[in-house]
C-alpha cells in the first residue's frame, strides 16, 4: 500500500507543498524562524566540526575540494539524465537504464555534498547565517531533493504512459533547480 495510492494524492501533496511554500515566503513567520535559528548557528561554530573548520585551513580546503568534486559528480549525473530525457544524447540506450545509473551516482554524490556541506557550514556558521544567498541555496537544495523523490522518479516509473513533452519539461525544471543550487553555492564562496 503506497502512501500515494489514493486518486491524485501525489498532485495534492505537491499542491500542499506549494501553498505552504508560498505562505512561508509571504508571512512574517519566516523572519521569526530566521531569528530563532541564530543560537543554532552560533552553537554550530563551537562544535568540533566548527572548531576544526576554523582552526585548520587545510582541513577546510580538503573538505571543500570533496564538496566541489561531489557537486561536479552530482551535476554530471543530472546533466546526463536530463539530456537523455530531452533526447540530446544516449538515445540508443534505454531511458530506464540511463536514469537508473545516473540516479545511483546522483544519490551518492548528494550524500557526500550534504555531509561535506554541513562541515563547511559549521566552520563559517554565523557568516552564512547572515547571507541571504545561503538561504536561497538551502531552499534550492530542498526543492531539488523534493523534486527528485516526489516528482521526477515517480513520473519516470510511468515514462511510457506520460506525454513526452512532460518528460522534457521535467528535465528543464531539473536543470533549472540544480543550476541554481550550484550557482548560489559558488556565490556563498564569493560573499562576505
Amino acid at each position: 500500500m503506497s502512501a500515494f495510492s489514493l486518486p491524485y494524492s501525489r498532485s495534492a501533496a505537491v499542491a500542499a507543498l506549494l501553498v505552504a511554500g508560498a505562505w512561508l515566503g509571504l508571512s512574517d513567520w519566516r523572519l521569526q524562524a530566521w531569528q530563532e535559528l541564530l543560537p543554532l548557528f552560533e552553537w554550530m561554530e563551537t562544535t568540533p566540526l566548527g572548531v576544526a573548520g576554523k582552526t585548520w585551513g587545510a582541513v577546510f580546503a580538503l573538505v571543500q575540494a570533496l564538496h566541489l568534486l561531489s557537486m561536479a559528480l552530482l551535476g554530471g549525473a543530472v546533466l546526463v539524465a536530463d539530456a537523455r530525457l530531452l533526447g540530446l544524447l544516449l538515445r540508443e540506450v534505454p531511458l530506464a537504464t540511463v536514469q537508473q545509473r545516473c540516479h545511483r551516482v546522483f544519490a551518492w554524490a548528494l550524500l557526500v555534498v550534504v555531509c561535506s556541506g554541513v562541515f563547511m557550514a559549521c566552520g563559517v556558521a554565523v557568516k552564512v547565517y547572515y547571507l541571504p544567498v545561503f538561504w536561497y541555496k538551502m531552499l534550492a537544495l530542498a526543492v531539488g531533493v523534493v523534486f527528485v523523490y516526489l516528482v521526477r522518479r515517480p513520473l519516470l516509473r510511468h515514462a511510457d504512459a506520460v506525454h513526452p513533452w512532460t518528460l522534457r519539461l521535467v528535465a528543464l525544471a531539473s536543470l533549472m533547480i540544480w543550476f541554481s543550487v550550484a550557482a548560489t553555492g559558488r556565490w556563498i564562496g564569493f560573499s562576505g
Binding site: 486518486p7 491524485y8 494524492s9 501525489r10 498532485s11 505537491v14 510511468h158 506520460v162 525544471a173
Partner: peptide, 18 residues
Amino acid sequence: AQARDAQCAALLACAAVV
C-alpha cells in the same frame, strides 16, 4: 491513474519551479 497523477504533479511542480 498513477501515471496521470504523476504527470499532474510534475506539471504543477514544473510550473512552480520555472
